[in-house]
Amino acid sequence: MTANQNTIARQFIESIPHAGALGLTVTHIGDGTAEIVMPYNPRLIGDPDTGVIHGGAVSALMDTCGGAAVISHPQSPGGTATIGLRIDYMRAATPGQSITARATCHHITRSVAFVRAIATDDDTDRPVATATGTFTVEEA
């Protein structure tokens, strides 16, 4: 992907209505990898006692980041949709901290793209969640 294509991909991701609702920012995209940040937001809390973000919001972040990694792959025609996504939740994200997802499209065929992703908060040595996903490969 050229720098210009990366800018277009970033703008495309950030123009997704639900990405906007979550306040997502693309901090890196290109060559089959993407990094997206979701700022802490009280509206996304899943456990009111602790202020921990709901797993569903982490799923949405992982899914967006996985799709971004796929469309940024040099062999991608530019479009994608999720086929399957599995997420393991290792621990609760620390309340008040943003969550960063990093996804890699590690293999792509004419039909299917394979993705690994990891989500962390400020303590980057202890992942909040990991994910593996499969995505379609299609024209934008």
Binding site: H18, G56, S59, D63
Partner: peptide
């Protein structure tokens, strides 16, 4: 959004 669908199922 696929993430919304996943979140709806999880909730």
């Amino acid at each position: 959004h696929g993430g919304v669908t996943a979140a709806f199922l999880e909730v």
